[in-house]
Simulated scan of single mutants.
Amino acid sequence: MAKPCIICVAITGSLPRKEMNPAVPITVAEQVESTQAAFEAGATICHAHVRNDDQTPSSDPEKFARLKEGLETHCPGMIIQFSTGGRSGAGRERGGMLQLRPDMASLTVGSNNFPTRVYENPPDLVDWLADEMLTYGIKPEVEAFDLSHIHQAAAMQADGRLKGPAYVQFVMGVKNAMPADRDVFDYYIRTVERLLPGSEWCAAGIGRHQIEVNEWCVAA
């Protein structure tokens, strides 16, 4: 029997704006409507960002609470995953919504370069976010922008900072970080299987790489 394919939809992200694509859902109401359409089409995980009124990224717990309530109402049974990404806040502000107890939350366990800046994830912040997820019973999605992040996740699981089995996402195609390369993709799968046996993995391709990476995932 073939293993089921889990589809995760990132309905908004942290960068696209209405002037780039009028279809980008920005308000909570738009996000709920967009997620419901994806849910009815077969998506089972929602990776959720929220935005301020000026469309900039936000970590506002009140907005996350409204989004979570809307998704639970209109997408019953869908797995809700909050983003703790660094574009939406600084320091522990990035995890201020974890007390809402989503099913999952993103966790980047190390720093790396982005196109124009460093995506900073210092060890003390990573440990605090991981501890908050343990406290509130939240499953981390380890976002691997670099090979070292898979090794760090394995170390954190080994010493109890992460509860296994791990769930790891390969984020591919970010300029100055991990490329969208099929050989690299295959090696990352082998690395997760070797260091984190019994874990699950998924992958995201940034921008023009999304369909290509989706095809690799389905074929793997």
Rank of each mutant, 00 (worst) to 15 (best):
M156T: 05
Y119C: 15
A154V: 05
N121D: 14
L125E: 14
S111K: 14
V118A: 11
L134I: 05
A105R: 10
S106T: 15
T108Y: 08
R117P: 00
P140M: 04
W128H: 11
R182M: 00
F145A: 03
V126T: 06
N121R: 06
R190L: 07
H151F: 03
L125H: 09
D131T: 13
P115M: 05
G198N: 05
Q169H: 14
L134P: 01
V126R: 10
N113F: 12
W128I: 02
A153N: 02
Q157W: 00
M97W: 07
W128T: 03
V174I: 15
D159W: 07
A130Y: 04
R101A: 13
R101L: 04
F114A: 15
V109M: 12
S148H: 12
A180P: 01
G198M: 06
D186Y: 00
M133G: 12
E143W: 03
Y136M: 04
D183E: 09
T116R: 08
M133I: 05
L134Y: 01
D131S: 15
M172Q: 11
F145N: 09
V192Q: 02
R182S: 00
E193I: 01
V126S: 09
P165M: 05
G110Y: 07
E193M: 05
M104T: 11
D186P: 00
V118K: 09
A177T: 04
T191P: 01
A144I: 09
Q157F: 01
G137E: 08
P122L: 12
Y187A: 09
F170Y: 12
S111D: 15
